[in-house]
Design a protein around this nucleic acid. Structure first.
Ligand SMILES: NC(=O)c1ccc[n+]([C@@H]2O[C@H](COP(=O)([O-])OP(=O)(O)OC[C@H]3O[C@@H](n4cnc5c(N)ncnc54)[C@H](O)[C@@H]3O)[C@@H](O)[C@H]2O)c1
Ligand SMILES: NC(=O)c1ccc[n+]([C@@H]2O[C@H](COP(=O)([O-])OP(=O)(O)OC[C@H]3O[C@@H](n4cnc5c(N)ncnc54)[C@H](O)[C@@H]3O)[C@@H](O)[C@H]2O)c1
Lengths: 251, 251
DNA sequence: AGGCGCTTGTGAAGGTGTGCACAAATCGCG
DNA sequence: CGCGATTTGTGCACACCTTCACAAGCGCCT
């Protein structure tokens, strides 16, 4: 989860004037977190040749309950046809619009160590509408290195480059003790979304969104369940976990 | 029977365990997901020299609300002292016990491409009670390679090695189209917890836990918030917003 | 000993998310 | 044209989670 508030609308008492709708229906956060999964499933289905899909079919492909899926989709308007299902291409377009993926988003990556190198070479960025436009590191021996056709620049240049390239999203892959300083630099440069791989809490202004990916936390959660399962084997009437509990990171 | 131990007078040894291990079957999932964060914050505080910490202080370090933190800790029968706070060392021990981190957990990693190499070299595993004991790949040109002192083995050996090394947790870092097959192999080998980095849904038996880390999903969630923020700042004039209504696709 | 300030632990209220079950809508077909 | 099969969209009940507010407990000081 992000440690920053979303949708803060700070201090304004009554609802916003804006006679028309605010540009967005306020989607539940849980729904937003699932939309990318639906999108991926839809792309798979589309390539498989289907042009429509039922909520049941899409739900299975995305690993969720079909009622949940219908409710999620209903939040962004009715784009299904009763008795038929959802038009795959139309739904893809709709979800991509809501997620803002129709606009190419410029991303920068800070910290080109072990993890940073892997991320820089990851094709999952470009294939989903994101483009890494700049790489930064503080280590002089790394600056100048070329990775995937991109030059590693010194972090001091971040401010200038971020403005030039209109970077909105920054990815932090530095050690934890440098992460806050990097976040400060990103924020100063106008970046308003940060994906943090360093195991630490970042403090940022309220208008900046932070999401964290922490491998160790995931393992520790798994460890807990291992622990629980191990203790249950000794007990009679062992109960089984609900099926299909495919936890996603974050929330 | 699943009687919560402790409850005895304060002053009993912190390391005491009931003979029959009764884990905490009733811990809220949301609490479990936060315990690792508390643990990390506690380690930081401990190294900083503090021997006790208030819920306010720990909550700040972990980036959560203090009431939430107190309620979380109360679920595991926490040892706080009113008017003083929590004993850092004791709380660390408690949380590590609940998460099952007092037992070393053997982990194997499947798929040694870009990401797999980074993960294999990550010291955040060992420092938190996990140890990678085996590496597997299907590519003959990778098998035999030595990474961080570990030999890459062929995935066909997974079944045998998993039993030998008593592997409980498997990490999947293969392409998505191989992930399900790898998961099946892991499950057959007795692995009951899987951390999946491939962007796909895995189907596993009910007793196996799967957690997924998907970078693209994180970015897309950030993208949504960027989109929302951008549309909010564009509104004040009341002029027609860009793509004003969400029915941009209609007809 | 007693009072005082501080902090925990928790009841209660409100919010968010989930899943069932079903009415409404649509299509294909006779 | 009507009917039945199918599938969406959603009202509702429930479970879970979060946050507030405060009594109870603890240590310290006088
Ligand atoms: N390697 C992994 O598999 C992995 C997995 C999960 C999380 N992480 C986390 O990701 C982060 C990076 O891990 P890593 O293994 O790549 O570490 P690393 O030490 O290999 O790389 C860190 C990089 O950050 C650079 N750096 C340091 N301070 C900087 C600063 N102030 N500004 C810009 N760049 C700076 C360093 O020069 C180095 O290139 C760590 O916080 C780690 O805990 C790593
Ligand atoms: N690189 C990243 O930064 C990154 C980030 C997030 C997610 N991912 C995901 O992680 C996965 C791996 O990414 P990557 O960049 O390392 O890919 P990669 O192609 O570099 O590596 C994949 C590795 O898996 C091995 N493999 C393939 N089939 C296998 C099988 N059946 N059994 C065992 N091993 C097999 C391949 O030999 C190869 O070594 C992908 O699903 C990717 O989407 C990668």
């Amino acid at each position: 989860m992000s440690q920053q508030r979303h949708g803060s609308t700070p201090g304004n008492g009554p609802g916003e004037r804006a006679g028309a709708v605010t540009a967005f229906p306020d989607l539940p956060e849980a729904t937003i977190a699932r939309l990318p999964e639906y999108l991926r499933a839809l792309h798979n289905l589309g390539e498989a040749g289907g042009d429509t899909v039922s909520s049941e079919g899409l739900a299975a492909a995305a690993g969720v309950n079909s009622a949940k899926l219908r409710k999620d989709l209903s939040h962004l308007g009715s784009y299904g046809t009763r008795g038929v299902g959802y038009d795959v291409a139309l739904l893809i377009e709709q979800i991509e619009y809501v997620l803002g993926l129709d606009q190419r988003r410029a991303v920068c990556l800070v910290g080109l160590g072990n993890l940073g190198h892997a991320l820089a070479g990851y094709d999952g960025f470009a294939s989903r509408g994101f483009k890494i436009v700049a790489l930064f590191d503080a280590d002089a021996s790394k600056v100048g290195e070329e990775i995937q056709g991109l030059l590693v620049r010194h972090i001091e240049d971040l401010g200038r480059v971020a403005v030039e390239e209109n970077i909105a999203i920054g990815v932090i892959a530095t050690p934890a003790d440098a992460a806050q300083a990097v976040a400060d630099v990103l924020v100063d440069a106008g970046v308003t979304s940060i994906l943090n791989f360093a195991p630490c809490v970042l403090s940022v202004p309220a208008n900046v969104d932070v999401r964290k990916v922490d491998l160790a936390i995931e393992l520790q959660i798994l460890s807990f369940h291992e622990h629980r399962k191990a203790s249950l084997t000794a007990l009679p009437g062992g109960r089984s976990a609900p099926a299909g509990n495919q936890e996603a990171v974050g929330s």
